[in-house]
């Protein structure tokens, strides 16, 4: 199946791309997808502990089973707003 992967901030820098089209076996979970990416992009290894995931624009646990065409985003700890807050 085909998964549309979106990457942000330091994770995007580690991979060098903002968006990846990834082919994965049926039944893969978010965690399995992430491990697949880590083996393709070893620089990701240092980030996995703090990453959240979103499937189709909603936060989702790593155990979530993926489906063909899903959009999966790997989300580092966020830092919106301003420091003054």
């Amino acid at each position: 199946m085909h998964i549309d992967v979106l990457l942000f901030a330091s994770v995007r820098d580690a991979v060098g791309q903002r968006r990846l089209a990834v082919a994965t076996p049926e039944g893969d979970t978010v965690e399995q997808l992430l491990q697949r990416l880590v083996s393709d992009y070893p620089k990701l290894a240092g980030h996995t502990g703090t990453l959240m995931a979103a499937v189709n624009q909603e936060y989702a646990p790593r155990a979530t089973v993926l489906h063909d065409g899903d959009e999966v985003a790997f989300i580092p700890p966020v830092s919106g707003g301003s420091d003054a807050l």
């Binding site: 330091s10 580690a14 580092p76």
Partner: peptide, 26 residues
């Protein structure tokens, strides 16, 4: 600041870094 997926990168005159949570990275 806790859950909206927005990130900032601080740029100084001698470098830059993403801020993730309270941490400077990359």
């Amino acid at each position: 600041k806790e859950i909206v997926p927005v990130w900032k990168r601080e740029v100084w005159d001698d470098g830059s870094s993403w801020v993730e949570g309270d941490t400077l990275v990359s």
